[in-house]
């Protein structure tokens, strides 16, 4: 009797996991393995695929300066976005964490709300603000500060602005979660031992909140680097990011082997970032923020 119960205990988790595992294997793992193979095939001039082992796509993806430049500028935009989110988000998270409990509930709720507002709407909302007939230009022209409305949109800064707007809540939430986990008496202990409040922040709170900062940073970086929509809505013709190249290759040029190689390149670069993060911080930190509703 005891042995059958034990057998059920070992079998049961796998039964429960099997639908999810099947989905992951069939819809993620095998397709990823497939595009690895596919990236070595060749698209012929006739438009069909030549099965085989050709390095042409990889050679093109890795040596063509066009792809390299856009990859680098994508990573640069992602890095600037991440740093901006960290600088803007940290004090805000600190404020929420140290607020009185009544305010805190409201502040947290308002922090979660942007997650529920459509990404495309939040992105396009900046056209209403920065566009030629947007709120800012209308204000400046009407008040006589400007004679002519300025074109503030469709450049790299407006892409970064859109990304920061989209990703900031991820950063604030992750930093908040780690600040909330710090025993407040540690900071007061540091103060009673003679630290100024700024010192006790730098010596105690900041180091203890680094895992949350790192988790928020990872999310911001990876999501920014994989962005497809923001540059199309808020960027100009020259502000394409790497995901736009992938779309171009797959959907417009129908060059699927090249598109595969480009996607894998993006996956590899971002995978490297995730691996480094996982090595030093661990995935559990990101999962924590989902406990916040």
């Amino acid at each position: 009797m005891a042995s059958t119960v034990e057998a059920r205990e070992t079998r049961q988790p796998w039964i429960l996991l099997s639908p999810a595992l099947t989905a992951i294997v069939l819809l993620l793992i095998i397709p990823l393995a497939f595009i690895v193979v596919y990236s070595f095939w060749l698209r012929t001039a006739a438009g069909s695929e030549q099965v085989g082992f050709y390095l042409d796509n990889w050679k093109e993806a890795l040596t063509d300066s066009f792809y390299r430049d856009i990859l680098l500028s994508t990573l640069r935009i992602a890095l600037i976005t991440t740093i901006a989110c960290a600088l803007l988000g940290y004090p805000c998270a600190y404020f929420i964490a140290r607020s009185k409990s009544g305010n805190k509930t409201l502040l947290l709720l308002m922090l979660i709300l942007p997650f529920w507002i459509s990404y495309i709407i939040r992105t396009m909302s900046w056209i209403n603000i920065l566009g030629v007939s947007g709120a800012l230009n209308t204000l400046l022209v009407n008040s006589g500060l400007l004679a002519e409305p300025l074109q503030l949109l469709y450049n790299e800064p407006s892409v970064i602005l859109g990304l920061v707007h989209f990703l900031l809540p991820f950063m604030v939430l992750n930093v908040y979660v780690s600040l909330e986990g710090i025993d407040e008496s540690l900071e007061s202990a540091a103060r009673s031992l003679g630290c100024t409040s700024w010192q006790s922040f730098l010596e105690v709170t900041l180091p203890l909140s680094l895992p949350g900062l790192a988790a928020g940073g990872l999310l911001c970086f990876v999501l920014a680097a994989g962005t497809y929509i923001t540059p199309l809505v808020l960027g100009g013709a020259r502000d394409a990011m790497f995901a736009n190249l992938v779309y171009e290759a797959i959907i417009v040029q129908l060059n699927w082997p090249l598109g595969s190689a480009l996607s894998l390149m993006l996956l590899f670069v971002l995978g490297l970032v995730v691996t480094v993060y996982n090595r030093f911080v661990g995935m559990g930190q990101i999962a924590k923020s989902f406990g916040q509703e």
Binding site: V222, L266, V274
Partner: peptide
């Protein structure tokens, strides 16, 4: 963890 574009393409 996989960028959505890559997932979509695959």
């Amino acid at each position: 963890l996989v960028p959505e574009v890559v997932l979509a393409v695959a």
